[in-house]
Design a protein around this nucleic acid. Structure first.
Length: 568
RNA sequence: CGGGGUGUAGCUCAGCCUGGUAGAGCGCUGCGUUUGGGACGCAGAUGCCGGAGGUUCAAAUCCUCUCACCCCGACCA
């Protein structure tokens, strides 16, 4: 593409509306334009990247045996009433009526439609398993769209749905998608993790999320530095310490600690490490009572784990001052497990302490030299804390690292959640009717593009992973308007590379060098080729990868081979 | 939906408190000089000051209502 014929409009200044870097860069580089809250147009250069992401996804879905189809954005309300989601989905589901006053929705997802297709067209177990997928625009009327294309109301999603007669086949189909997703994100050149998602009350290991690692990610994930273990922070198990608890050495004694309400203040006042202190949090119990959680001073309560325990009120709620006073006779900051008469859960690592410090259940008083069993009884051991960087991995290999991630994919075993109400069933070998098992598998295509930028940029702009770059090569001629020699070499290079299938962005604008360099870097094109009189005097051109800090020179007549060797 | 904030040129923003002829930088157009890191000079174009109502001799500025957008909290690819 000749830039002189494409009206790019890059901006030096950061648009005020954009908060995250990928959004800022996408606007500045002219990849997208906002139309309304959560609605974006994709301009030609941005669309090229979007199409590349889609192409990789299609290739890998097809390779995995999935069949592409296309379902409408607008769906009849009836189907949603049938599945029960007409009422269950909430205001995020955009509903409207047509001129005949019939209910319709703008599809946020397509389980209903695909299940409807399958129940009409699939009649026999012999036609199964199948996996249908599409790349389609979705609409979710988010309360608060933000971060540009990362959390838009309208977005493009690849969604796939598999159907099976038995559990083993579902497992197999799920596995195939898992492997396809690994190939997809690997091919896109992204640093990502497949993460165990909290499976919630349903239970079972049936859901995995795919996260692109990026400092600005919305989710915290924990992963092993030695094997493939990765989990949402909420879902990552904290192992009990291996070493046995040391024997008590100190006697328990009371100390005055005026005003020391936090572990930090306490630790400073008594000159004791926070990891030798214990904190006691009280939450509402499912009856009138409270439930106590005891954690090491340097650990944090994990609400998801805590609210799964018997006796805890749902959702998890910290106890109010009144209940605390009734249960302990003290106030927050001075609570401890000694003599506490309520259900007590202690985290494994708190239980591994000996001679620790805790609240005395009296204002401005703490206890030192406290020991389990000797001084505190009736405690239930549990995993109730967030894992921390450096904790041993629950997989048994390596230690945990914590990173932030952007969720770009989710695979899920749905079971009969939709096939049951929508009555999707076939006859099996024995002529018996079986309700189909279903899996669904999503990738946020538009979000992947934003996530790629979030992960790959510097102060000058985007640094595209090559498989997603809108162009592979940016050709920058200097003094093009005056130097016939530069024009001739640059034109020839553009034609030759283009003829060989290389995607070249040819900056033939009448602009100063600084402008061209700055735009090339903002746009993030991986390979830059500079044609200038200075180099041509010696018969040389200049090459620089977007990640390089220095340019390299090479003979001008080997340009095509040179650039192709760099692109491998 | 609750809380906070912003609407002025294509973009980033000043002006508003204390009412009196609409501003800057970037971008855009023309001409000239310049040409290896977002150049310089000269000349220009561009505004329903988000909208409606009110107060006033006079409103971008004060008041009321309204709309849009942004930010902080519960969902999700």
């Amino acid at each position: 593409m000749r830039l002189s014929q494409y009206p790019i409009n890059t901006a030096k200044e950061t648009p005020a509306e954009a908060e995250v870097l990928s959004h800022q860069l996408m606007l500045r580089a002219g990849l997208i334009r906002r139309v309304a809250a959560g609605l974006y147009s994709w301009l030609p250069i941005g669309l090229r990247t979007l199409r590349k992401a889609e192409a990789i996804i299609r290739e890998e879905m097809n390779r995995a045996g999935a069949l592409e189809l296309l379902m409408p954005v607008v769906q009849p309300g009836e189907l949603w009433q049938e599945s029960g989601r007409w009422t269950a989905y909430g205001p995020e589901l955009l509903r409207f009526k047509d001129r005949h006053e019939r209910d319709f929705v703008a599809g946020p997802t397509h389980e209903e439609v695909i299940t409807d297709i399958v129940r009409r067209d699939i009649k026999s177990y012999r036609q199964l398993p199948v996996n249908f997928y599409q790349v389609q625009t979705k609409f979710r009327d988010e309360i608060r769209p933000r971060y540009g294309v990362m959390r838009a109301r309208e977005f493009i999603m690849k969604d796939a749905y598999s159907f099976h007669t038995d559990e083993a086949s579902l497992q197999q189909g799920y596995r195939a998608m898992h492997d396809a997703y690994i190939r997809i994100f690997t091919r896109m050149g992204l640093d990502f993790r497949a993460v165990r998602a909290d499976s919630g009350p349903i239970g079972g290991d049936v859901s995995q999320e795919f996260h692109v690692l990026a400092a600005s990610g919305e989710d915290a994930i924990a992963f092993s530095d030695e094997d493939g273990y990765a989990a949402n922070l909420e879902a990552a198990a904290a192992l009990a310490p291996k070493d046995p608890r040391p024997a008590p050495r100190e006697a328990m004694s009371e100390v005055t600690t005026p005003g020391a309400r936090t572990i930090e203040e306490l630790s400073r006042m008594l000159r004791v490490e926070p990891s030798r202190c214990v904190k006691t949090l009280l939450v509402d119990g499912s009856d009138q009572d409270v439930v106590a959680f005891v954690l090491r001073g340097d650990h944090e309560l994990n609400a998801v784990k805590a609210q799964r325990l018997p006796g805890v009120a749902l959702p998890l709620r910290m106890a109010g001052a009144e209940r605390i006073a009734r249960a302990t006779g003290a106030e927050t900051g001075f609570i401890g497990p000694v003599g506490l008469r309520c259900r007590i859960y202690a985290d494994h690592s708190a239980l591994a302490l000996a001679d620790f410090v805790c609240g005395a259940n009296r204002k401005d008083m703490h206890l030192t030299g406290v020991n389990w069993e000797r001084d505190v009884a009736g405690v239930t051991a549990a995993d109730i804390r967030n894992v921390r960087e450096g904790d041993p991995s629950p997989s048994g290999r390596g230690h945990l690292k914590i990173a932030r991630g952007i969720e770009v994919g989710h695979i899920f075993q749905l079971g009969r959640k939709y096939s049951e109400p929508l009555k999707a069933a076939v006859l099996d070998e024995s002529g018996k009717e079986v309700t189909l098992l279903m899996g669904c598998y999503g990738i946020g295509v538009t979000r992947v593009v934003a996530a790629a930028i979030e992960q790959n940029h510097d102060e000058r702009g985007i640094i595209w992973p090559e498989p997603l770059a809108p162009f592979q090569v940016v050709l920058v001629p200097l003094n093009l308007q005056k130097s016939a020699r530069v024009r001739e070499v640059a034109d020839r290079l553009y034609n030759e590379l283009t003829a060989q299938g290389v995607e070249v962005l040819y900056d033939d604008r009448d602009a100063r060098p600084g402008v061209k360099f700055a735009d090339a870097e903002l746009l993030g094109i991986p390979h830059r080729l500079v044609v200038a009189d200075r180099g041509l005097d010696a018969g040389r051109l200049e090459y620089r990868h977007r990640r390089d800090s220095e340019s390299t020179e090479f003979p001008a007549d080997e340009a095509v081979e040179f650039i192709k060797s760099r692109m491998r």
